[in-house]
Deep mutational scan, measured.
Amino acid sequence: MVYKIRDKETGKVYEVTIDEETNEITVYDVKTGKPVKTVNMTIEELKEAGYEVEPV
């Protein structure tokens, strides 16, 4: 599923895909559409880390 996340401190917005089964999150560069990095976190962990998470 695709989400937009926003860093509450910097205001930067990222587009991510989240595999609900493995909790693998792939972060994409919004301008190029290319993957930047992959992390292993849940949506709740993202929120605790200071991100706003919205489904696209």
Results as ranks from 00 to 15, higher is better:
residue 37 K to L: 15
residue 27 V to Y: 14
residue 23 N to H: 09
residue 17 T to D: 03
residue 55 P to Q: 10
residue 45 E to M: 11
residue 17 T to E: 06
residue 50 G to I: 04
residue 51 Y to N: 02
residue 54 E to R: 05
residue 13 V to R: 03
residue 33 G to C: 12
residue 24 E to C: 13
residue 32 T to M: 03
residue 13 V to D: 04
residue 7 D to G: 01
residue 53 V to E: 02
residue 45 E to A: 09
residue 45 E to V: 05
residue 9 E to V: 14
residue 6 R to V: 13
residue 39 V to E: 04
residue 35 P to E: 08
residue 2 V to S: 13
residue 33 G to M: 06
residue 27 V to D: 00
residue 28 Y to W: 13
residue 37 K to A: 15
residue 38 T to Y: 07
residue 7 D to I: 03
residue 24 E to W: 14
residue 47 K to D: 04
residue 12 K to T: 12
residue 21 E to V: 12
residue 53 V to T: 04
residue 29 D to H: 03
residue 34 K to L: 13
residue 19 D to P: 00
residue 13 V to W: 14
residue 5 I to D: 00
residue 28 Y to A: 03
residue 32 T to I: 03
residue 32 T to V: 02
residue 39 V to R: 03
residue 55 P to V: 10
residue 55 P to M: 12
residue 11 G to C: 05
residue 24 E to Y: 13
residue 52 E to A: 06
residue 33 G to E: 02
residue 27 V to W: 15
residue 47 K to V: 11
residue 51 Y to L: 03
residue 2 V to K: 15
residue 42 T to I: 01
residue 19 D to Q: 06
residue 5 I to M: 05
residue 39 V to N: 03
residue 8 K to V: 08
residue 45 E to K: 08
residue 33 G to L: 05
residue 31 K to A: 14
residue 24 E to K: 11
residue 46 L to K: 00
residue 25 I to T: 03
residue 27 V to L: 15
residue 2 V to A: 11
residue 50 G to P: 02
residue 19 D to T: 05
residue 55 P to T: 09
residue 37 K to C: 15
residue 23 N to G: 13
residue 47 K to W: 10
residue 50 G to A: 05
residue 45 E to S: 09
residue 3 Y to N: 04
residue 17 T to A: 06
residue 30 V to E: 14
residue 35 P to Q: 08
residue 38 T to K: 13
residue 10 T to W: 01
residue 24 E to Q: 14
residue 28 Y to Q: 04
residue 36 V to R: 03
residue 37 K to N: 07
residue 30 V to L: 07
residue 16 V to W: 03
residue 19 D to S: 08
residue 4 K to N: 05
residue 21 E to C: 13
residue 5 I to R: 00
residue 33 G to Y: 03
residue 21 E to L: 12
residue 56 V to W: 08
residue 23 N to A: 07
residue 1 M to I: 13
residue 15 E to M: 15
residue 54 E to Q: 08
residue 10 T to R: 01
residue 40 N to L: 12
residue 4 K to Q: 12
residue 46 L to C: 05
residue 48 E to Y: 08
residue 28 Y to V: 08
residue 17 T to S: 07
residue 29 D to A: 02
residue 30 V to I: 13
residue 38 T to I: 10
residue 44 E to C: 08
residue 36 V to N: 03
residue 36 V to P: 02
residue 15 E to C: 15
residue 40 N to Q: 12
residue 8 K to C: 11
residue 8 K to H: 05
residue 16 V to L: 09
residue 52 E to G: 04
residue 20 E to G: 10
residue 32 T to H: 03
residue 47 K to L: 14
residue 29 D to R: 00
residue 42 T to S: 11
residue 49 A to S: 11
residue 19 D to N: 15
residue 14 Y to H: 02
residue 27 V to E: 03
residue 47 K to H: 07
residue 46 L to F: 07
residue 2 V to N: 13
residue 49 A to G: 07
residue 10 T to A: 01
residue 26 T to F: 08
residue 1 M to K: 15
residue 12 K to Q: 14
residue 19 D to R: 06
residue 38 T to V: 11
residue 28 Y to K: 08
residue 26 T to L: 06
residue 8 K to R: 10
residue 25 I to V: 08
residue 48 E to W: 08
residue 31 K to M: 14
residue 38 T to Q: 07
residue 16 V to H: 00
residue 53 V to F: 09
residue 10 T to P: 00
residue 23 N to C: 07
residue 41 M to L: 08
residue 15 E to Q: 12
residue 35 P to N: 05
residue 17 T to M: 10
residue 41 M to W: 07
residue 19 D to M: 05
residue 55 P to G: 09
residue 46 L to Q: 00
residue 3 Y to K: 08
residue 53 V to G: 02
residue 53 V to S: 02
residue 33 G to S: 05
residue 5 I to E: 00
residue 26 T to G: 02
residue 25 I to C: 06
residue 5 I to P: 00
residue 19 D to A: 05
residue 6 R to Y: 12
residue 23 N to Q: 08
residue 1 M to N: 11
residue 45 E to I: 06
residue 4 K to C: 14
residue 42 T to N: 06
residue 5 I to T: 01
residue 28 Y to N: 04
residue 23 N to W: 07
residue 30 V to S: 13
residue 24 E to S: 14
residue 20 E to S: 12
residue 3 Y to H: 09
residue 30 V to N: 09
residue 18 I to K: 02
residue 28 Y to L: 10
residue 56 V to M: 13
residue 24 E to V: 14
residue 23 N to T: 06
residue 26 T to V: 10
residue 17 T to W: 11
residue 36 V to C: 15
residue 53 V to Y: 04
residue 14 Y to V: 02
residue 2 V to Y: 15
residue 32 T to G: 03
residue 9 E to L: 14
residue 28 Y to G: 01
residue 53 V to L: 10
residue 12 K to L: 13
residue 39 V to H: 05
residue 2 V to H: 15
residue 40 N to T: 12
residue 41 M to R: 04
residue 50 G to D: 03
residue 56 V to C: 10
residue 10 T to N: 06
residue 1 M to Y: 11
residue 29 D to C: 06
residue 43 I to P: 02
residue 26 T to S: 04
residue 5 I to H: 00
residue 46 L to D: 00
residue 6 R to W: 11
residue 44 E to L: 08
residue 13 V to K: 03
residue 18 I to R: 05
residue 54 E to H: 07
